[in-house]
């Protein structure tokens, strides 16, 4: 067992325009990337649970050349609207860091 934070070289979030949030989970080695992809620990279902967003609104892709898992969801509030707390969307990845990844 390891956490996603331990296996990734970078987990980040950012606006993709003012109305969407995007998460990049990037790995240094092919081994770590394959382990996480193969573990099925980062799926639309997991993102739906962590971020309470309907699965049909989630885009999740595996980018092999970048050794990255990318997830995009709509923002609950547009960037810097009155009730938004994260203008750049840069601190929305926290719940992913401690996600437990089964396996060696």
């Amino acid at each position: 067992m390891a956490t996603l934070g331990e296996l990734a070289k970078l987990i980040r979030s950012k606006n993709a325009g003012p109305f969407n949030l995007t998460f990049d989970i990037m790995f240094e080695t092919e081994e770590a990337y394959r382990r996480v992809v193969g573990s099925n620990a980062v799926t639309k279902e997991v993102i739906r649970r962590l971020y309470r967003v309907p699965e049909e609104k989630i885009l999740l892709v595996h980018h092999d050349a970048a050794r990255a898992i990318k997830v995009s969801i709509p923002r609950p509030v547009p960037s810097c609207d009155l009730e938004d707390g994260d203008c750049y969307g840069g601190q929305q990845y926290g719940p992913l860091v401690d996600l437990e990844i089964p396996g060696a």
């Binding site: 950012k14 606006n15 993709a16 325009g17 969407n20 995007t22 990049d24 990037m26 885009l59 892709v61 980018h63 050349a65 970048a66 050794r67 990255a68 990318k70 995009s72």
Partner: peptide
Amino acid sequence: SPQSVASHTLYENTDPF
């Protein structure tokens, strides 16, 4: 690196492809 350049299509985009 090949990975760093490939990764840049991820940046601030919803869909890297």
